[in-house]
Nucleic acid binder design. Structure first.
Length: 951
RNA sequence: GCAGAGGUACCCGAGUUGGUCAAAGGGGCCGGACUUAAGCUCCGGUGCUUAGUGCUUCGCAGGUUCAAAUCCUGCCCUCUGCACCA
């Protein structure tokens, strides 16, 4: 057929839309399946990374529809954020305009790919219909005490003109623009996510995320158990509180270090000879960001503060230092230093000549007085404790005992610390959800009453490149408002929300997207979200940000009674990178822009090779989806995406592979057309085709259920086609068989290539739209094993015949023209059947095998005795190199032998085919011993392995 | 350093409850059929060897076993995340 992908695909896309094929409602009579791709930011047109993401999701959505599930598969856009604002500035417009233009563009691209979204649930977070509910939920969080406004040192990006959450800072650089962030103290809005730290951490064990994502989240939350210990200062009322994860090393404390900004520093050293040194160190530290303090510090420096702290357990006085490596924001900003068992403290102690004391040994019996040449940071029995019964305790027991001792003297207690911090929500930008709060001179900060929501972003703002700061702050009509509490003039909050807030609950909004009286109804969300989103697909880059916020949010709304589940996502699939070749210099280990193909390395001048790297604008190694769809059609692109690699692994773009997949499409089309044009002549291959189809259906079903899409597509688009071709080659040509075959096969093509599947569904007279068709459970037939085994037997003969032919040619003078196949001697088959029967009964061949074979009647035959014995051994115990056949035969082969397969009959029935395949003009076959032993092959003949001679 | 995932034939990639594994499938390459020819399509080949045998292979080195791609130990390398975290 002339395959006009453009025409076929757009025609069916219209038909699906017209029929509302993908529109779903709550229906308790069916199992539900919620398939979701991570919320896209509409940055213009769709790129290949999107194509991969959605092709995976759509295949799964379509598969589950075929399986009879009620599939929720929505699409919307995470459309607030900086890029639109920057674009608006550039063109002197409004981000709203930019955003809607981009949404229209990406949506058109998605529609052209034929993704089966329920477009009625479409939403954009920058539309007031959506962010209204952001605000409503913010009031809910506020009422539940989860919102806090406080002064805090924040990460500020000068370029983006706004603060960033901790998660948005990577290597001290802004995640968006890459500029280094600076520290600023500002009044900010926080969501108290840390209230849920423990649940967020503990629940990780029970969710089906990939291990790497789980590990990242655990790391990020970073719970550590330890102790808070109070060191009082000698000659003062001051107390230094320190957090440690190693209370078992308390007797090794030989100094205490404060962060230079610690308020006690000044108090302790003012007026002393050490004050000047401390001030210098503090000022130096203030000039550094926290990141530099933690990661870039080359030199550990400290100054003595002139005072001593008292170890609460043994009363010992140790010097107090200020150290540049102690960070104020972690723990208490004070460290109890144990140089014997902490490498950093060891280095510091060595430099300043402080005592290094061993209070742990590595294993029992070690010398407690052995000097340390490096810190021993592991766990081991306590030694040299000086007081109490601590010596000998190790690990958790040691920690607990020390903590109990501290608690008894009220000098400390066990604690838990987290790395996770509260979610810094406010952004000093325009294009985000306005925080619904009002600042009143009299009443302070007052929430906007729910009845007055939404607080809408003004549309009468013109953006330009000159302006800096947040245009909202300069918009009088927005800012000025009466206080909802006292009615006096007041001012609106002009900070907007981090866009991660928008994406933290959108999956629940999709359940009830058009609700205009609440964020979502409990009924809808409990139906669709039961067990979480069943399949959530997206990039690994959201492992700690979006996925953690969304988990938190779901728990917060659950506790507010809005939904039942506490974990939003069931199975999470993180799709791998999409790579494409780029010029690469092995010496410099650097990739360059595609313009440098065939050029020399711009850095070292050597000639460039290529390497597969992530597709991206910066290297220019991108491929345009539009262009590929235009050239090959959406189905080919989808097939390539699914067949190229399994979802979670990286994948290389390859032009030749895309072309190969396009050829595959043609082959499938040709095959189906041939199936539609069959004669009405039933034959022996019909049952084989059915049996193969059933086997493939079962394997396909399993692969698809496991999101092993590559494997699934391999079956639906490659294996089944190969079977069909074999059927035809073997003379299969039955209309009824072909029709039933297509009835099953064509639907299997739909998840990956829905348009061509729908086209053929119609042409073969399928009922209704394939898009809404339900495929029955894969069936089974007890006959299948032996049907398939017979054909496999035949193929085996042809395969070994081919191998042998090559060898035979070398040993034969003249042309090879005929073949003689001697099948197994009947007595060998009988022995094989006996052996199999005994094997299935658990017979021990090693002890009883010989006696058994000798007891057989046939063993009386003296001339055969030797061969009988050899055959028996080959069947049962095998040799050193080869196991007995009873062990190595597959189930199918055992079935054939046990049923007493007449090999000669099978070969005779197919002699013309075999002869043609092996390129000989005549074929003769008989059981060994019943004819001439041509070329001495009779002895080789074995059940399922006939002796083959070419002549 | 810690944690997670990996290392399979020219490339990609299955296979890891030990035996049916010289190891699926695809790409590429080689050969054949078809064709005036190229392309398409179909068929076959693609570790070495051999009238169906034998040999050497699944990061490296050992070990367990009658039997290891698969299990154990050590090592090397790649990717990802965290990191002078108290």
């Amino acid at each position: 057929m002339a395959y006009d992908a453009q025409e076929v695909e757009t025609r069916w896309q219209k038909a699906w839309a017209k029929a509302g094929a993908f529109e779903v409602e709550v229906d308790h009579s069916k199992p539900k399946f919620y398939c979701l791709e991570m919320f896209p930011y509409p940055s213009g047109s769709m790129h290949m990374g999107h194509v991969r993401n959605y092709s995976i999701g759509d295949a799964m959505a379509r598969f589950h529809r075929l399986m009879g599930s009620n599939v929720l598969y929505p699409m919307g856009y995470d459309s607030f954020g900086m890029p639109a604002e920057n674009a608006a500035k550039k063109e002197g417009g409004h981000p709203h305009t930019v955003t809607h233009r981009n949404i229209a563009s990406i949506r058109a691209d998605q529609e052209r790919m034929g993704y089966s979204y329920d477009w009625r649930r479409f939403l954009a977070t920058s539309d007031v219909d959506y962010y209204h509910w952001n605000q409503e939920m913010f009031l809910m969080l506020n009422e539940r005490g989860l919102v806090e406004r406080r002064m805090a040192p924040v990460n500020w990006c000068v370029d983006c003109d706004t603060v960033l959450a901790n998660e948005q800072v990577k290597n001290n650089r802004c995640w968006r623009c890459g500029l280094e962030v600076v520290q600023r103290d500002m009044e900010q809005w926080f969501v108290r996510m840390t209230e849920y730290s423990d649940e967020l951490l503990d629940e990780i064990d029970n969710i089906a995320f990939p291990e790497n994502v789980k590990a990242m989240q655990r790391n990020w939350i970073g719970r550590s158990h330890g102790a808070h210990i109070d060191f009082s200062v000698a000659g003062s009322d001051a107390v230094i509180g320190a957090f440690t994860t190693r209370p078992d090393t308390i007797f090794g404390v030989t100094f205490v270090t404060l962060s230079p900004e610690h308020p006690l520093c000044e108090e302790l050293c003012t007026g002393s000879e050490w004050e000047a040194d401390w001030r210098e160190l503090r000022d130096e530290c203030l000039r550094m960001s926290e990141f530099e303090r933690i990661n870039m510090l080359k030199e550990k420096k400290g100054v003595f503060l002139g005072r001593h702290a008292i170890n609460p357990l043994n009363g010992e006085e140790v010097p107090i230092y200020a150290g540049n490596f102690v960070v104020a924001s972690y723990g208490t900003g004070a460290v109890m230093a144990v140089p014997g068992h902490d490498q950093r403290d060891y280095d510091f102690a060595e430099r300043y000549g402080i005592e290094i004391r061993r209070v742990l040994i590595e294993r029992e019996g070690d010398d407690p007085t052995a000097p340390l040449s490096t810190a021993f940071e592991g766990y081991g029995p306590m030694v040299n404790s000086g007081i109490g019964d601590f010596d000998g305790l190790a690990g958790e027991v040691a920690k607990d005992t020390v903590i109990s001792a501290l608690e008894a003297t009220r000098a400390g207690h066990g604690t838990v610390e987290y790395r996770l911090k509260d979610w810094l929500l406010s952004r000093q930008r325009f294009w985000g959800t306005p925080i619904p709060m009002i600042h009143c001179g009299t009443c302070g900060v007052v929430p906007v009453p729910s009845s007055e929501l939404p607080v809408e972003l003004p549309l009468d703002v013109t953006f330009s490149e000159e302006q800096s700061g947040n245009p909202l702050a300069a918009h009088d009509a927005f800012v000025n408002t009466p206080c909802p509490s006292c009615g006096e003039d007041a001012k609106r909050e002009t900070d907007t929300m981090d866009t991660f807030y928008d994406s933290s609950w959108y999956f629940m909004r999709f359940c009830d997207a058009n609700n205009n009286s609440a964020p979502f109804s409990r009924e809808a969300v409990d139906y669709w979200m039961d067990g979480g989103v069943d399949l959530y697909i997206g990039g690994i880059e959201h492992a700690v940000m979006h996925l953690l916020y969304a988990r938190f949010f779901t728990k917060a709304t659950r506790d507010a009674g809005m939904n039942k589940v506490g974990e939003p996502f069931g199975t999470l699939v993180c799709q791998g990178m999409l790579n494409a070749p780029a010029p690469f210099c092995a010496d410099c280990n650097a990739e360059y822009h595609v313009d440098n193909f065939d050029a020399d390395c711009p850095t070292c001048g050597k000639s460039l090779g290529t390497r597969s790297v992530k597709m991206g604008k910066s290297l220019g190694n991108t491929v345009s989806p539009e262009e590929m769809i235009g050239r090959y059609g959406a189905d080919t692109v989808r097939l390539f995406m699914l067949f190229g690699a399994n979802p979670e692994v990286g994948m290389d773009w390859s032009d030749s592979a895309v072309e190969a997949n396009h050829r595959q499409m043609h082959s499938i089309i040709d095959a189906i057309e041939s199936a539609l044009a069959m004669d009405n002549s039933p034959g022996p291959m019909d049952e084989w085709l059915n049996a193969r189809l059933r086997a493939n259906q079962r394997a396909w079903h399993q692969a698809m259920s496991n999101v092993s899409l590559r494997e699934g597509v391999m079956i639906s688009h490659f294996e089944i086609l190969a079977d069909w071709n074999w059927y035809r080659r073997r003379g299969g040509c039955d209309q009824a068989t072909a029709k039933a075959f297509l009835q099953q096969w064509v639907p299997m093509l739909a998840p990956a290539t829905p348009h061509i599947a729908e086209e053929f569904w119609q042409r073969m007279g399928g009922e209704g739209l394939l898009a809404t068709h339900i495929l029955p459970e894969p069936s089974d037939s007890s006959e299948d094993t032996s049907i398939l085994a017979r054909e496999a037997y035949l193929r085996n003969i042809i395969a070994s015949g081919r191998n042998l032919r090559e060898l035979a040619e070398r040993h034969t003078e003249g042309e090879i023209s005929r073949i003689v196949i001697q099948t197994t001697a009947p007595w060998k088959l009988e022995l094989a059947r006996d052996a199999l029967r005994l094997h299935s009964e658990g017979f021990d061949f090693k002890t009883g095998g010989q006696a058994y074979v000798q007891s057989l009647e046939i063993f009386e035959n003296e001339t055969l005795r030797g061969e009988i014995f050899q055959t028996w051994m080959a069947l049962t115990t095998g040799s050193k190199k080869k196991r007995g056949r009873v062990h190595s035969w597959a189930v199918a082969e055992r079935t054939l032998i046990s049923s007493g397969l007449d090999e000669t009959a099978v070969i005779e029935a197919n002699s013309a085919f075999i002869a043609a395949e092996l390129g000989v003009s005549s074929l003769e076959t008989y059981p060994a011993g019943e004819g001439e032993d041509v070329a001495g092959k009779a002895g080789l003949a074995f059940p399922l392995e006939p002796g083959i001679a070419f002549l």
